[in-house]
Design a protein around this nucleic acid. Structure first.
Lengths: 246, 246
DNA sequence: GAGTGGTCTAGACCACTCA
DNA sequence: GAGTGGTCTAGACCACTCC
């Protein structure tokens, strides 16, 4: 039964209470002060100790349950999950992933232009066939080793890609700067053999296995903004997910 | 501003109110009575109409936001996301996926035995090296076409695999019957070339691209129960996910 | 029976968006 | 300034687990 004496909340902060509690609770786990399998003090007592209401305490715990770091069991209690913790797959770009892993990713923009939407892109982006959209093709490298080939199309009426430095940041930060906030994305992950063109760009041989990701992203008004068709060299990249039963 | 006149709640049901509301709201969207882009009536009014409190109404809406079907924007409202809706990737087995898609999946158990845990399995399952664990190898077929090769190891002290018919159901239903409830799983998805053995079993050629999934699953006490190393033929399988910004 | 998490209420105040 | 979602409270009762 682990109480949480280190957790302090700051009611003058603009960070929500549940987020303050969740962040500090996560740190307790990541830094080993809460050990795998250890049982937390019950919710009611914890809320009282931290000086928040029980719903707020529950919301904090729920965030970590969704991250796969805690498990709750009715009538029993809340425990820390065993096993090493991994980051959850979120709405971040590959660029961010690599940067935070301490590597030095680079991006080469192979092409950037406005094209007439062909049927598939038109359907995905919810625009008329032939309407002008952005098309961009980028090569992602890590220490001069090609890692991924990224092909994207974007709604030209919602984003101005010409104003953005795509070699300096990922697509999502760029969209954020342009006041387009992506809030939902649907992904499909599979694999296939490299085409001749892909093999040449990625420094691999035709027929080599590639990890593929096809994604459509929607803004906070529910409009399709971006569609991506990405291929990754699987020896250098993988998708990690945490699944939680509800 | 769409009110939701069709939604009725049953206070005598054992299904939580928020789940009743969420399920019926989801059906409104899936069956097209709420159209993409349409704005919902505000939360306070909806709660009043349905006769529930606002936190309960919010919880229902939050479930669909997490599924990627609704987007909320402070100061503006809640809208239906554009684009076709897909099922979220959940804690289901491939067997269930195929069965619910109307296909006829079959499973052939290639081997099932108790082995001494080698270092990698021992670390993943949190047991001593050399301790007895289950090892099972299965081939998944769809209409006589090989689809996937599934290799799993399980904690023998938590599960009795000899009592289970693995050709009749997936691994997770089998575990559920054995009173082992999986609540969290961590997955890593990538790709690689088929080995000679894999190619033979899957009816493909050595070097063919395969989709790979490595998973560790934990029960509701946070203990590692199962580890899987699966390979799929990418032309027949893909992983779909919905990502939501938080 | 004691203790736990699961659900639910009826409010309140705040932050943000948009006309 | 009006309307929206975001946060928070202080309780209540229930369902489940385990002794």
């Amino acid at each position: 039964m682990a109480a949480l004496p280190r957790i302090k909340i700051d009611r003058s902060s603009r960070v929500p209470l549940y987020a303050q509690v969740a962040d500090q609770l996560e740190r307790e786990i990541l830094e080993g002060r809460l050990k795998p399998g250890e049982k937390l003090t019950n919710e009611v007592a914890l809320a009282e100790q931290l000086g928040v209401s029980r719903p707020t305490m529950r919301q904090a715990i729920s965030l970590l349950v969704d991250k796969g770091m805690l498990v709750r069991k009715r009538g029993v209690g809340t425990q820390v999950v065993h096993g090493q913790v991994r980051r959850t797959l979120g709405l971040t770009s590959l660029f961010d992933d690599l940067a935070s892993a301490g590597h030095a990713p680079r991006t080469r923009v192979l092409s950037l232009s406005r094209i007439a939407a062909e049927p598939e892109s038109a359907r995905a982006l919810d625009v008329q066939i032939g309407e002008e959209i952005w098309s961009v093709e980028r090569l992602r490298l890590i220490e001069d080793t090609p890692l991924a080939l990224l092909r994207n199309v974007l709604r030209a009426d919602l984003v101005d890609l010409s104003a953005v430095d795509l070699e300096r940041s990922g697509l999502y930060p760029a969209l954020r700067e342009a006041h387009v906030s992506i809030s939902v994305a649907r992904q499909r992950i599979s694999a296939r053999a490299a085409t001749q063109k892909e093999a040449k760009l990625l420094g691999d041989h035709p027929g080599a296995p590639l990890l593929t990701m096809d994604r459509t992203a929607y803004d906070d008004a529910g409009r399709a903004v971006e569609q991506g068709h990405h291929v990754y060299r699987p020896s250098l990249y993988a998708f990690e997910t945490t699944l939680v039963d509800r």
